[in-house]
Design a protein around this nucleic acid. Structure first.
Lengths: 132, 132
DNA sequence: ACCTCAACAGATAAGTTTATCCGTTGAGTT
DNA sequence: AACTCAACGGATAAACTTATCTGTTGAGGT
């Protein structure tokens, strides 16, 4: 539902959101969050390419939240790491290819409810909310 | 949330539940469900060890639902394939180790709601309900 | 007894996710 | 210009999930 990588990304963004307009080194974020430093570097790179984070190289460099990123729903983050299908869930809990309102599986309604709650969660929660 | 293997198991049990007191060959179930035959054999073996299915070898052999298995909640199936943690979810959506009512993360309440809906689904749905 | 059938069991492989390693680039300092 | 710092990028590895392959066991038919 939420990959470990995506959860890392949430934590990282939360750490940045809590320290706006500061240049934070990857090493520092790794130490603070407990995320493996080298892996965290990859994640931050993807966040940069996705336009959520800005970076600066060299002495005094580091990462910071990009302007306007605080208001982005965390759904945008999930899409980056877990793909579109993870955010726009329409799958069947049994894995049946054709499961819809017309031919529902045993869990169709309840599963749809669970998914809706999830969708609501990731669309209403914004990056700024992750600040700890 | 639900591994592919567990979904396979749901489908298999549904197929068996729809044909009670019949001896069904693995090959037949695989053909009907589209699940890879050799992988399906493994799954059925685990279901047997978990006491959900009975089997018979040789000519005329096959699988059938075990007595009383129809009333088992599908939570029991999920535990077999995805582990206890998958059924008794208490994890944090952000992956933070200490996230509780006292120190909730941004999504704590909503995520708890999603999890509760899921728990409810897998405890109220029984194997018999999977029959297609 | 012998043969066939289908479940059983272990080993191996493919694919995906997570994590590590190492050299390069570019920015700032001295 | 030389040096250091930290982000960048590609390659590699470890771990887990999913899938395949091969031979064995046991039950029934001939």
């Amino acid at each position: 539902m939420i990959s470990r990588t995506a959860r890392y990304a949430f934590q990282i963004l939360g750490y940045l959101a809590a320290r706006p307009a500061q240049q934070l080194r990857g090493e520092e974020i790794a130490a603070a969050t407990g995320i493996p430093a080298n892996y965290l570097a990859k994640i931050l790179n993807q966040l940069r390419k996705a336009g959520l984070v800005e970076s600066q190289k060299g002495w005094g460099g580091g990462f910071r939240l990009r302007e306007g990123a605080e208001t982005r729903p965390i759904r945008d983050v999930l899409v980056v790491f877990d793909g579109l299908g993870s955010a726009e869930r329409t799958d069947c809990a049994l894995g049946r290819p054709a499961c819809d309102a017309g031919h529902p599986c045993a869990m169709h309604a309840e599963w749809a409810g669970v998914r809706d709650g999830f969708t609501r969660m990731i669309t209403t929660t914004r990056v700024a909310d992750l600040a700890q």
